[in-house]
Design a protein around this nucleic acid. Structure first.
Lengths: 257, 257
DNA sequence: CGCATAGTTGAGTGCTATCAAATTACGTGG
DNA sequence: CCACGTAATTTGATAGCACTCAACTATGCG
């Protein structure tokens, strides 16, 4: 638990200040340094309270593919992603693999009631995180009800997102799933202030495949199909240009009566 | 918002008193009457506070297939299921249907951050619910932090469950999904005090199919396969006897390293 | 008792996984 | 900066499994 004044993290600095609903009207703050500070400010804590939160936090750097936690480990820490991208992975004994989600800057790791981690969490790209002990977090939650409220909102948000994800997995074709994924990722980037039609995919095809319940080959073919339909353009393998969000959305939102 | 002294609900009376972790060591309470009372007691509220909660609640009865809320409606109420079974349904324009979950006694409806309902909620069997306005609920949450904590725990629980569900949808064969579903439903019944090898399925095959991302035919064939392998026995269409939980579990938990 | 609905079983097709190969991207060392 | 080797991605051919369509059976209700 070291005193914080965290060095500027590598990678993009998300201007979360703007995006956070709880932040409206409050003083500007340097959210690039540490998500803890952001969380505190957005929870309407005083400067003194914010400092107390920061005291409880440690920081962490991960290289690509480095493991943060392993399935089955005791959950003694919670984390806040500062920069980079991580994936949450469920492995089955026979090798089947499911990437249940990707974690971007501002995301919180620890919205679970389980005593052990249900998932591996691995860095996709070089990443930085803030770390709290569960114990400290519990104290902070008790001490600052705003934090608890904030966590509840986050949990709600994840639940809402998860319901969409479930529909995609259960009822959409490969191309639809990919379109859904690209739009969803793009929306998250937009919330982080990167609102461009050019989307950078930090993860490889196999991560995407395992996230969408498909094989690498099918994902690749789906990219090709979207490209052939002029819905996206590929600039290298990482950079996807969303040419027609309208029609991409139409692929996905066959729904909501 | 009528004063409550709710008539004994139809259907089974879940002895939730025992199951709730927050309840340990506290005085017994008649949880059969209304889940609100249960929630209050399990949140360690005083009798006066409990009464205040009950005052804010209304009750509701639903006939089979009756609609509680429709996709897109404003979310002005939250609910607690007292008896019966409900399903949450996502409909797509072209008719594709996903049953994202089933709600059993003790379940809470309203763990969402959205301003509108993302799902239809329909009664599978005759059901009874307690209803609160969101507004009242928010007040109660602010007034009794225990409630907020409880909701967070519930949200965590749902998130954890959802992650399992996602793996089933994305990576399991039809037979595995069905085995997973049966065990999961059985576990929920066990938590409600119905810990028997005989499982009653309140929902029809098409609901199960749409929950597991399959067709009715495939679900039916999967039942047959499980029966042929002596893992289950069917007594009529509704009653499933779990003959070998061990091997059923083995089908599912190919996983966790 | 007859009809309507729900569930099971069967046959055939299509889509996605699988297997295999070619191509591209990338990091390393010359 | 380029050549090389490795890994990642794309493309192609094939096969298996779940969906579709269809018929049949069981269940429930008037």
């Amino acid at each position: 638990m070291s005193r914080l004044r965290i060095a500027p993290p590598p990678g993009l600095l998300p201007p979360l200040t703007e995006a956070c609903p709880g932040h409206a009207g409050r003083q500007k703050v340097d959210c690039g340094t540490c998500q803890v500070r952001h969380l505190a400010v957005c929870s309407a804590l005083s400067p003194e309270e914010t400092e107390e939160m920061e005291r409880a936090a440690g920081q962490l750097q991960l290289a690509p593919n480095e493991l943060l936690v392993r399935q089955g480990q005791a959950r003694i820490h919670v984390y806040s992603v500062t920069s980079g991208t991580l994936r949450t992975v469920r492995l089955m004994a026979d090798g089947r693999r499911q990437v249940t989600g990707f974690l971007l800057p501002g995301d919180f790791i620890g919205l679970s009631g389980s005593a052990v981690h249900a998932l591996d969490i691995e860095a996709v790209t070089a990443s930085a995180l803030c770390r709290f002990s569960q114990q400290d977090m519990r104290q902070l939650r008790t001490r600052f009800p705003h934090i608890e409220r904030k966590m509840l909102e986050r949990a709600f948000g994840e639940l809402d997102a998860n319901r969409e994800y479930v529909v995609a997995l259960a009822r959409m074709s490969p191309v639809e799933r990919l379109a859904d994924f690209l739009l969803r990722l793009s929306a998250r980037h937009a919330r982080l202030g990167q609102d461009t039609p050019m989307l950078v995919l930090p993860m490889g095809r196999s991560d995407i495949a395992d996230h969408l319940g498909l094989t690498v080959e099918t994902v690749s073919r789906s990219f090709t199909k979207l490209r052939q339909q002029q819905l996206i353009a590929l600039h290298g393998v990482q950079n996807v240009e969303l040419l027609d969000r309208e029609r991409l959305g139409a692929l996905v939102h066959q729904g909501e009566a």
